[in-house]
Nucleic acid binder design. Structure first.
Length: 600
RNA sequence: UGGGGAUUCGUCUAGUGGUAGGACGACAGACUCUGGAUCUGUAAGCCGAGGUUCGAAUCCUCGAUCCCCAGCCA
């Protein structure tokens, strides 16, 4: 929340935060009006058919922040009504990702349920330690849902339809052509009940019949043209096994799951706006005793240079374009985590982008800002040379080693200092030396000087080349009085570069990640093949990197700033004791790169 | 051309009849032993046309453009 813009009245402090998005305002109004006994209960209802991505994070943050703000609850619920696409692998990843994202922030609002309980009553996971808990499952309510369906039949508000899928489509009409009533629309309650029970008993094949709501085939809203409520699927369900061969559709299951769990505000994305009349119709048709939940819609996240559809992300994986759901180039929470994004930075990002009904395209720089901001404050600075160029200091004794003091984080004095070894042979970055430098290049050039970070001023006195002309070694000298903190240390030198001592450094693999696509909207347009826009440079693996000694002990997942280069984290999977592998999370802002891009 | 939504700097977002503000990005400068961080400054916007009003981003009318809906997916 930003600060109030209101002027203080008298000696009173400024008023409470004023920037509230429309969902927040709705909830505040409902609490004010005493709806639901002033209670707020939201839910995050992913379908376990893929991994959670940054778009889900927006929804998670929204739902949990509302629960948090109003002292309410937020249920984690698997929206698992389609057995053919769902899997326990996804259930587990979703649990982990949600927990990771909200940990220490909204975990008090999180509601799970006692293992095996199907009542829809939640428990606080952190307030009931030791208790076996699990997410809510829409599939836990299949029994209750079935009863509601029979109730609807008895009320004459639903019927069994024998139309084939193709016929059903034809009868439905099109947006500007009214539908026609199904010939089975006026079956008796008794016949409907009998048929429905036999559907459940497994007497019919997949697709042979459906249960449909009896609403209005001439409605301008297609979702009100007798929508299918139940379909036959002889399939094993990841949570209910072989217990059922009929499964409820989303529209039937979702509103009722909300009702069963006592959800007050059912927040979803814009594409469900046209379903809202159906959400309300089902709940009202059942004439339920308790106050009903209501659905609200917000715009899903679109982020530049990436994809935000589970189907397309799965395609990337199946075509081996990425290595898995947690490939650091993926916009999944597991991918971002592995890339080095903190939960904090993602929450900050979600707060920054706001919540509206405008379907926009969020600039990727906003996400980069969030992680840079976070890591700038927290990450320890280290020196690492990605593409080494050997430097021999001719006026430095061969057997001498000095330990130089370096600060761990200039943004945080409490992070302390460390000692780094300096010796006659060093590595510097190939990019930090140029024989024929362009204007404004102020690093090392033949005959020129540069400051070695935390060490001496270095002068290049000779360049050794391979037969092919490639520079293989720099012969240099140091100004012995120029040691950081020394007598002539304050001599002004334009450039400062990083380095490592050749005999002390650790060799490591570093993976340089870049955006996955070359265009902002790889899936824009009617039928685009987003693979055409894959960025061939989205991953570059460097195996000859030389890092300062302390990095040998980097812990999996630990983040650092490699000075002048960017933020890197030790890969959680491939880092082994003494043998780290680093992922570049994000580069530092690079004024030099910008300078180079300028036309001239 | 049926229905449902949306439209404010390049991007995201405030504003609810009374000076269009913030953030990112861009640009310029200061500072800097990270071309980082930090600081300062600059440019940049109400989809359009009418109307109501002393006064309109805001209210009314008519247009324009974009998104969503014709799964027995969610």
């Amino acid at each position: 929340m930003s600060n109030s813009t209101e002027k203080p009245t008298g000696s009173e402090p400024a008023a409470a935060p004023v920037h509230r998005h429309f969902i927040h305002e709705t909830l505040a109004r409902d609490v004010e009006a005493g709806r639901h006994g002033k209670r707020i209960a939201t839910r995050f209802p992913p379908e376990p058919n893929g991994y959670l991505h940054i778009g889900h994070a927006k929804s998670i943050c929204l739902n949990f922040s509302m629960a948090r703000e109003f002292g309410g609850t937020c249920n984690l619920r698997m929206d698992d009504t389609n057995p053919t696409r769902e899997d326990v692998e996804y259930v587990e990843s979703i649990r982990e990702d949600v927990r990771w994202l909200i940990q220490g922030w909204a975990d008090k609002s999180l509601r799970l349920k006692k293992q095996g309980d199907a009542s829809g009553v939640g428990v606080s996971a952190i307030e009931s330690p030791g208790q076996a808990v699990e997410p809510f499952y829409a599939s836990d309510y299949f029994g209750a849902l079935y009863e509601y369906a029979e109730t609807l039949i008895r009320k004459g508000k639903a019927y069994i339809c024998d139309l084939t899928p193709e016929e059903t489509e034809k009868y439905r009409g099109s947006p500007d052509v009214k539908g026609q009533d199904s010939p089975y629309r006026n079956r008796s309650v008794e016949e409907n009940l009998d048929l429905f029970r036999r559907m459940r008993a497994g007497e019919f094949k997949d697709g042979a019949r459906t249960l449909r709501a009896k609403i209005d085939m001439s409605s301008p809203n297609i979702w009100l043209r007798d929508p299918v409520l139940y379909r036959i699927r002889h399939a094993e369900h990841h949570h209910t096994g072989r217990q059922w061969c009929i499964y409820p559709m989303y529209d039937f299951a979702h509103c009722l799951s909300d009702y069963i769990e006592g959800i007050t505000h059912s927040i979803c994305t814009l594409e469900f706006e046209v379903h809202r009349p159906l959400y309300d119709w089902i709940l009202q048709a059942l004439e339920l005793p308790r106050e009903l939940p209501r659905q609200y819609e917000f715009a899903r996240l679109n982020l530049g240079y990436t994809l935000m559809s589970k189907r397309k992300l799965l395609q990337l994986l199946q075509e081996n374009i990425v290595t898995g759901w947690d490939d650091p180039r993926m916009p999944t929470l597991s991918g971002l985590r592995r890339r080095g994004f903190s939960a904090d930075s993602i929450r900050k990002f979600c707060e920054r982008i706001g919540v509206t009904k405008y379907n926009g395209l969020t600039d990727a720089s906003l996400l980069e800002l969030s992680i840079r901001e976070d890591l700038n404050a927290r990450a320890h600075r280290v020196m690492g040379v990605l593409r080494p160029l050997e430097v021999v200091i001719e006026n430095y004794p061969e057997d001498k080693v000095e330990l130089l003091e370096a600060v761990n984080n200039p943004e945080d004095p409490s992070a302390g200092t460390r000692q780094i070894p300096f010796s006659r042979v060093l590595y510097i970055e190939q990019d930090d030396f140029m024989e024929n430098p362009p204007k404004k290049f102020f690093r090392l050039v033949p005959g020129g000087e540069v400051r070695l970070r935390y060490a001496y001023i270095l002068k290049c006195v000779g360049v050794d080349k391979a037969p092919d002309g490639r520079v293989v070694r720099l012969r240099c000298t140091i100004d012995p009085d120029s040691k950081s903190g020394g007598s002539t240390a304050s001599r002004k030198i334009k450039g400062t570069i990083h380095w490592v001592s050749a005999s002390h450094c650790v060799q490591a693999e570093v993976r340089l990640y870049d955006r996955l696509f070359t265009v902002e909207e790889p899936d824009a347009g009617s039928n685009p093949d987003f693979r055409k826009f894959l960025n061939p440079m989205s991953l570059e693996v460097l195996t000859e990197c030389r890092l300062e000694p302390r990095l040998k002990d980097a812990q999996p997942g630990e983040s650092f700033q490699f000075e002048r280069l960017g933020y890197f984290c030790a890969d959680a999977k491939d880092t082994h004791p003494g043998k780290p592998v680093f992922n570049r999370t994000v580069t530092l802002r690079d004024g030099w790169a910008k300078e180079q891009q300028k036309p001239s």
